[in-house]
């Protein structure tokens, strides 16, 4: 795999880390109207502990399907998905999953939605501690003043932030994020990217991040995987080395960043072009 060094003093971050997630020769087909459509074709992907992997590719290339399989909500048609060496079958409760569609409960206020994971029996905590964490996380995603609002009363971007907070509050060891910042404006996106990096580094989280924003992928990820259009295959992989802590704004203006983004765009553009012309 090609290693791209974004600054001279960048050091590999993940040496000696064990494999956390592995997809081996995974294919997935869906039945629609009696016809079988292949969404993923023989994917091999492994993610190490504490690694931040970004999946980019044209829409419909099966990126979300990969996340669904990692979460255990879908089984592969062929091949094997393992998590910490164990085959994933049924809901994988060690991951936090933020789907493209936010799954906030419409009858709960923003703060009650964020708190829900802490209410579950498997995660019993004291009310005082819960309240402190809730305030901290609401502050983090900038939803102060909207705690008592219902999801129907806030914007799409705010719902995304609430969903993110709901996932972060219980600190799962792995985060699966499906275009989490797609609906946010540019400034907020940068703030959220910086916070995501900070939190995941501090808590040593493993992240699989789906996006169609190449710059976002390069900014955040230790490794970027480019998918081809349907059926999805991994077309290219680039390891990104950058000085820690990453400066999510500053690093964009370096020539190395530009070169890598262009390189990834070249891998992506054939499929995107195909999509644009059809």
């Amino acid at each position: 795999m090609t290693v791209c060094r974004l600054s001279g003093d960048a050091q590999p971050r993940l040496q000696g880390r064990e494999t956390m997630i592995e997809l081996r020769k995974v294919s997935k087909s869906f039945e629609t109207r009696g016809r079988s459509v292949k969404a993923l074709d023989t994917i091999n992907l492994s993610v190490r502990e504490h690694e931040f992997v970004a999946l980019v590719g044209p829409s419909g290339c099966g990126k979300s399907t990969v996340l669904n399989m990692l979460a255990g909500l879908m089984d592969p048609s062929a091949g094997e998905v393992t998590y910490r060496g164990e085959r994933v079958s049924g809901a994988n409760r060690r991951v936090g999953y933020m789907t493209q569609k936010d799954t906030l409960l419409p009858w709960r206020t923003v703060e009650d939605n964020i708190r829900i994971a802490l209410e579950l029996r498997c995660r019993s905590s004291e009310a005082g501690e819960r309240g402190a964490r809730l305030r901290e996380i609401i502050d983090l995603v900038g939803l102060n003043g909207f705690e008592k609002h219902y999801p129907s009363e806030i914007s799409g971007g705010m719902r995304k932030r609430a969903a993110l907070a709901r996932m972060l509050i219980y600190e799962p060891e792995t985060l699966l994020l499906d275009e989490p910042f797609g609906a946010l404006d540019a400034q907020l996106k940068i703030i959220m990217q910086r916070e995501l990096l900070r939190i995941t580094r501090v808590r040593n989280m493993t992240v699989v991040f789906v996006t169609h924003d190449l710059a976002e992928a390069v900014t955040l990820a230790d490794r970027v995987c480019v998918f081809s259009g349907r059926p999805g295959r991994i077309r290219a992989e680039r390891e990104v080395l950058a000085a820690e802590p990453r400066d999510v704004v500053g690093m964009r203006f370096t020539p190395e960043f530009g070169a890598l983004a262009e390189d990834l765009w070249n891998e992506l553009k054939d499929d995107v072009g195909k999509e644009l012309t059809t």
């Binding site: 979460a71 909500l73 809901a91 994988n92 409760r93 991951v95 936090g96 999953y97 789907t99 569609k101 799954t103 409960l105 829900i116 994971a117 579950l120 029996r121 498997c122 995660r123 219980y170």
Partner: peptide, 17 residues
């Protein structure tokens, strides 16, 4: 909505929860 149930499942909810 099935997705709402899945979401809670992943957070570790028991069936009755």
């Amino acid at each position: 909505d099935r997705d709402l149930i899945d979401g809670l499942w992943l957070m570790g909810a028991a069936p009755d929860e």
